[in-house]
Design a protein around this nucleic acid. Structure first.
Lengths: 113, 113
DNA sequence: GCAATCGTCAACCGATTGGTTGAATATAAG
DNA sequence: CTTATATTCAACCAATCGGTTGACGATTGC
């Protein structure tokens, strides 16, 4: 809910939390299922999920006795843009760029059959 | 020197360190000058610079009794790319996109005199 | 040579972090 | 109603963090 650069970067600084985010990239998950692959207590995972929630990186919705975790990738936007300010490294990757152009703007150049 | 996602994100999670990086965006600086605008001891800044160095985000070169700090934006690359993997958020934002096109590719549209 | 400048080191401090355990709360299922 | 499941809470712990201070080691300038 804070969703400042501080909270987002801090949340991303932990490998467990990054792994959780990547799992949620595939699908929404219940807390128990998020915890499953990790060798650590459920309570610990619950705390990690709180950190991610505070950073705005996920939202949690309780349906019945199960709390579903949903990825909120938009919360990375500000952090990503901040980094791009140092953008000597390619802003997105030219391939993605061209793909975007072709798809969204119809720059009929189609270099690939 | 570690330059893992862990160290980079952790380094970026502190506002003082982010401010330092932005200062170095303009020019290389001596440690004392980096410390100047902050209301905190030189030793504290020295520690922050160590954290940034360990993350690979800056390098420090001693010339005479002055130690120069230099930004190393490439160290952000891996972290930036990792974030882009969640790229549901627009690749950069259409404005930034156009800006990119104009600046980098010279899409001579110059909407602003 | 001596004093000033640049920067780090070491010891310390309180706050935060990442983890544990065990008890507690809802909700669901039999 | 009773039991099992899903999740959190509270207390605790060791380790790390961000900061301070004071002493110290280089380097420079007079």
């Amino acid at each position: 809910m804070a969703q400042t650069l501080d909270t987002v970067f801090a949340a991303l600084a932990d490998p467990t939390r990054r792994a959780i985010l990547q799992m949620l990239l595939e699908d929404d998950m219940a807390v128990t299922d998020v915890a499953d692959p990790f060798e650590m207590s459920l309570a610990a995972i619950s705390k990690h999920l709180n950190v991610l929630t505070n950073a705005g990186l996920i939202t949690q919705e309780k349906r019945g006795r199960v709390k579903w975790c949903k990825l909120e990738p938009d919360a990375m936007k500000a952090a990503s843009v901040w980094m791009q300010g140092f953008g000597q490294f390619e802003p997105v990757n030219l391939d993605a760029f061209e793909a975007f152009l072709e798809r969204e703007l119809g720059t009929s150049e189609s270099p690939d059959p």
